[in-house]
Design a protein around this nucleic acid. Structure first.
Lengths: 335, 335
DNA sequence: CTGAAAGCGCTTACAG
DNA sequence: CTGAAAGCGCTTACAG
């Protein structure tokens, strides 16, 4: 059907071995003249190398597989850009696979699609693998890295933000702006090793260091969704206790913001919002959402670097406060 | 390295042929007992089929390659969901390739990555191919479909909205709400065959039918970006001529909205906004943006259906007005 | 600098 | 129901 090196060999009179050598540029094993003829003929015939065949014989691959949630994780673009950049620099290719929305079967299909062909390794983009699927992965002998999710278990490689630091720094920032009654909303605290629990721990630490006594209704758990933000604010509204809230994601922050809008609560005059992530969504809404911003691009770049160099390692990327319009300083007034 | 059918053959005493037959489930060519033994051994050994080898010998593939812009086209998720759904139903796999942001080289790399391995076909997700890259594609003999982009050239297959209808229906809707001075903003009119030009044509047709004389400053061209919206509104602000504007995308609409916010123009009291696309962004901002909504999910689903069935065809998917909060009816007042 | 040959992991007529 | 053999498109020692 499509043209192969055999066709080129026939056309030029050289052997397939020679054709293969010039086409894969094994410099020094052929004369300039031969190369010219073969390359020309390849172009003329519209030759496209069949990488599947190459990968089969060389037993190695230049493609990294990225598995992402189809969930609206609005930061995945940034991570993928970072991955793409590093892959490009290293002359690797990247293919992206959707793993559905926390669906065991979809995850398994995405995993199989990756595992059933020659690949360099797998990058899991904030996908929380079901145990059964993690088992498939670990038993495959293919290197893999989690991005934007961290683990206690140091057998698993991850590149993420330090979630405890996120909680700690976010809270400290709000305290530095004069807030004392600070909510934390939209995060999932259940799994003791994970994101939510760590952030909450950092939050409590900052409170403690500032001598603030935590009240249980300051914590409004959720699933990082817009709806979590809406619900959280409704609960806060009942108590009218807090002056600032840390949202677990930008979407949670927007949920809170919009519900404030509906209930005629002025942000930031009556309630300050500090959101987590700092994606472009923060600048789309009014007032713009201040955030504790994660370096997603860097996560992508770094994880790909590790994968390519086969560095079995974990790493934290930087976090920083981005001041926009949704946090009010109480200090000026207090003074 | 990893376990092959040869290993299973050795382990079970059957030939690789038999192993192959049961593992690829060529029903009727083996006994239940044999199957049981082989499947068991495969599981025990952690066998993973090497699809690259299979594809090499069968000369066909079950993977559809989707090429997307890394540009913030915030509707691509919906399209991909539709693709994924249909692919799943047909037992096909999908891999996604990023083609950068209107970058010739990135496009070429994405294309090569797809073309250099066995695939079923290619779906181009609102990527405006450079001529050189289109040439590569067409000469490859692999079926491909454009999604969310239409062409005059009927040699190219596309699944998209009817852009002239978008312009026409959007304008008619605004006219039905009593608006007469209607802007259209953020679209690119240059390439005569494309999206922007068609929408503008539909817009003009609706105006004409309503006996409204178009004024040239009602058209503010752009590139479908947030910034286009901001700039457009600044220009409108100078003339204070229009009561409603059709934004070329949700981001354009938000750019207009936020600039209104800055200039203390009340939406929709002083200016109505009808945005194009109708993604989730419309419901994130306040007031929520009314839109002429495209059926992106369906585009994905339909194009994948065509690709799998090898239907050489074009199709338009439905469009509809989604009333939210950003369009004011002038009729009540007029009455 | 070039070619003949073996082999990567699979599938599938052909024969039995 | 099962096996021996050829072959998919490539690469790479080995020989010359």
């Amino acid at each position: 059907m499509s043209v192969t090196i055999k066709d080129i060999a026939k056309e030029t009179g050289f052997s397939v071995a020679t054709v293969s050598r010039v086409l894969s540029d094994k410099t020094g094993f052929f004369s300039q003249q031969t190369a010219a003829i073969i390359n020309e003929t390849a172009a003329k015939l519209g030759y496209k190398k069949n990488m599947a065949a190459t990968e089969l014989v060389t037993q190695k691959s230049n493609v990294v597989a990225v598995i992402v949630n189809s969930t609206k994780t609005n930061f995945s673009d940034q991570i993928i850009n970072g991955i793409q950049k590093k892959a490009d620099e290293a002359e690797k290719r990247v293919i992206i696979l959707y793993a559905g929305d926390r669906d065991e079967r979809s995850q398994r299909i995405a995993l199989s699609t990756a595992l059933e062909r020659p690949i360099l390794g797998i990058l899991l983009l904030s996908v929380d693998l079901f145990p059964s699927n993690l088992a498939i992965l670990t038993s495959s002998n293919i290197p893999f890295y989690f991005i934007s999710i961290s683990f206690k278990d140091t057998m698993l490689n991850y590149i993420a933000s330090d979630d405890q630091e996120i909680g700690y720094q976010a809270t400290n920032y709000l305290i530095s702006q004069g807030h004392k009654n600070i909510g934390i909303a939209g995060l999932n605290i259940e799994n003791s090793a994970h994101t939510g629990a760590l952030r909450f721990k950092g939050y409590q630490k900052a409170l403690r260091e500032a001598g603030i006594v935590f009240k249980s209704d300051w914590l409004q758990t959720g699933d990082y969704s817009y709806e979590s933000g809406v619900t959280a604010l409704q609960n806060y509204y009942l108590k009218k206790d807090i002056t600032a809230v840390i949202a677990a994601s930008d979407l949670v922050g927007i949920g809170i913001l919009n519900e404030c809008n509906r209930l005629k609560i002025n942000v930031p005059a009556e309630l300050s919002i500090l959101t987590t992530d700092g994606t472009s969504l923060c600048e789309l809404v009014r007032p713009q959402l201040s955030s504790i911003t994660q370096d997603f691009y860097r996560m992508g770049y770094l994880s790909t670097t590790y994968l390519i160099n086969n560095t079995q390692n974990n790493a934290y990327t930087n976090i920083a406060i981005s001041q926009r319009q949704s946090v009010k300083s109480l200090n000026k007034i207090d003074h």
